[in-house]
């Protein structure tokens, strides 16, 4: 896996990261680097190791082995300088229920050496109308905005967003995306995890696809879908009783349906059609398809389901 980061100052550097819980290895050797100002997405199914990885970067969890640098610090040491320079939006976390939005933002802002203006933060996340309401009076979507507001209160250089839109309706997701884009516009480095492909595609400069604790693909959303190494799929049907030559390596999907995946579509197609012409067989419904980002994602992460890993 070549993890080519764009040129620039490195915000996050991870080498050979591993994390085990007892006999379960949740993270199995991750390498990545994130440059300043970049929006980096870690995309993967539930249980792939996203939250474990991001919580190691945030300083919540220790690692079993590997090197991790976040803004030049080892996050496991939880130094105050590092904690002052990053903002964290956890997957689930509560706020003091009986304080108002403005009070909690002001309370959190006070923990940081160079906080942003409280009203500006509230405005940025779109809670200006609810600024004087108590946390327990807010809707679910408004809660999530409070999460973002609290992460921004200290004017962090680096922002972690762990599954920021899980449970959102489509319009709330769009609004959240706009907020993330505006953060990127402010020059913040954003590290987000998601299990929504469209979210990674819409927001990220680069995406790492993670499955079973390992990064299985890394690149910009566009190059990721068009990766040369990804297999082209050739599908067709044959009449009953007709079987393609064994050396072609084609597998039966069901009944008369056949399929082959190849990284050399030109050669395979040439051999296949050559065999068909010689054998005087028609390849019914012959189809050659390039994988979409969705196909790439599903192909890369489906092994997990087969092996039934957590």
């Amino acid at each position: 896996m070549t993890a080519e980061a764009p040129a620039g100052e490195v915000a996050i550097e991870v080498r050979g990261l591993r994390k085990s819980y007892g006999s379960l290895e949740a993270v199995r050797g991750i390498d990545l680097s994130v440059v300043r100002g970049e929006v980096f997405a870690m995309l993967g199914p539930n249980g792939a190791g996203k939250t474990t990885t991001v919580e190691i970067l945030e300083g919540y969890r220790s690692r079993s082995s590997g090197e991790v640098r976040v803004l030049g610090h080892d996050p496991a040491r939880r130094e105050r300088d590092l904690m002052s320079r990053m903002g964290i939006v956890l997957q689930q976390s509560g706020v003091q229920q009986y304080l108002t939005v403005r009070e909690v933002v002001a309370m959190y802002a006070g923990y940081y050496p160079h906080p942003r203006d409280v009203d500006e933060v509230i405005e940025l996340v779109g809670l200006a109308d609810a600024a004087n309401r108590r946390i327990l009076q807010l809707s679910g979507g408004q809660h999530r905005r409070v999460d973002v507001a609290l992460a921004l209160a200290g004017d962090p250089e680096l922002l972690f967003l762990d599954e920021p839109t899980t449970g959102f309706d489509p319009s709330a997701r769009r609004q959240a995306w706009d907020t993330v884009r505006s953060l990127a516009g402010l020059g913040k480095t954003v590290f987000l995890t998601t299990h929504f492909m469209d979210e990674a595609q819409a927001l990220a400069d680069r995406v790492a696809i993670i499955a079973r604790g390992q990064i299985v693909a890394l690149g910009s959303p566009n190059t990721l879908g068009a990766r040369g190494s990804q297999a082209t799929v050739i599908r067709f049907s044959l009449p009953d009783g007709v079987v393609p030559a064994e050396e072609l390596g084609i597998t039966r999907v069901s009944g008369g349906a056949w399929q082959v995946q190849t990284t050399e579509p030109t050669r395979v197609l040439h051999e296949l059609t050559g065999w068909a012409v010689n054998a005087q067989v028609e390849l019914v419904g012959l189809e050659v398809s390039r994988p979409s980002l969705e196909d790439v994602y599903l192909a890369l992460t489906s092994e997990e389901d087969q092996e039934g890993a957590a």
Binding site: E58, G59, Y60, R80, M83, S84, I88, L90, Q92, S93, G94, V95, Q96, Q97, Y108, Y111, Y112, P113, L150, G154
Partner: peptide, 13 residues
Amino acid sequence: LGILKRMRGTPLP
């Protein structure tokens, strides 16, 4: 509620 966890993610000692 996760309030403690959130607090732990800030520079507040």
